[in-house]
Nucleic acid binder design. Structure first.
Length: 213
DNA sequence: GGCCAGGACACCA
DNA sequence: TGGTGTCATGGC
């Protein structure tokens, strides 16, 4: 069957249930996790997250009070620890300037919020969209590797990099923040189950479907 | 022992 | 404006 974005979301939601994404106890934990997870498996990112939790309770001001050597040691298990430490400092100190008042920050920057996020060190196109969706409640389609693989699986061609899909896929206006969060979670959970390195296109409940963008 | 994981950036032409 | 190299760890 030929599906729209909304129909695809509904079908995945029916088959898989709520994704529960992003699993975290606070928005600050999501911000930190979004940086630690970059190009890294969750096991390693979670190790670093737990080291940071033990050391600081994941309180941004306590993280910003660490020396760079201390931060490096905590972030190390996640890999790219120099880059990620620098990214944590740049993003958390920017949020600190807004007193971690996310609605107020969103209000202040308005439609320029994404470009402000992109200007922070360590925030590329994907992390910016993750922060928009999960921190600022701006429903955004996150065209990460799993999304591109899924959409290719559904017959969409030419999805070579992040922006190739990002430019073509906007969420319908009726997508709420909760739906956007859930949709991304479902896409990534689907990818983990059905897209293995050796068998990228396993049989699934979407095998007979195509997608219309 | 190579490949990969919920990317981003510096450098270069 | 794009293409390529680098950043790092741990599991399989």
């Amino acid at each position: 069957m030929q599906l729209t974005i909304t129909q695809l979301y509904q079908k995945m939601r029916r088959q898989m249930g709520p994704s529960g994404w992003w699993p975290a106890d606070s928005k600050e934990e999501i911000v930190i996790g979004a940086i630690l997870i970059q190009n890294t498996n969750w096991r390693n990112a979670d190790r670093a997250l737990n080291l940071l939790r033990q050391a600081t309770g994941l309180q941004p001001d306590r993280i910003l009070a660490l020396t760079m050597d201390q931060l490096h040691d905590l972030v190390r298990p996640a890999g790219f620890y120099r880059n990620k430490s620098k990214a944590l400092v740049s993003v958390l100190s920017w949020l600190a300037r807004g007193n971690y008042d996310y609605p107020a920050i969103r209000q202040h920057y308005g439609s320029r919020l994404r470009q402000e996020l992109r200007a922070l060190h360590g925030v590329g196109p994907e992390t910016a969209d993750v922060l928009l969706t999960y921190i600022f409640d701006v429903p955004t389609f996150i065209s990460d590797k799993y999304a591109r693989t899924l959409f290719t699986y559904l017959g969409v061609t030419g999805l070579t990099d992040y922006q190739s899909l990002s430019q073509r896929c906007n969420l319908p206006d009726d997508f709420t923040p909760a739906m956007a969060k859930d949709f991304h979670g479902l896409i990534d959970e689907f990818g983990k189950v059905y897209f293995h390195p050796r068998d990228k296109f396993a049989t699934s409940f979407l095998s007979d479907d195509t997608l219309a963008l």
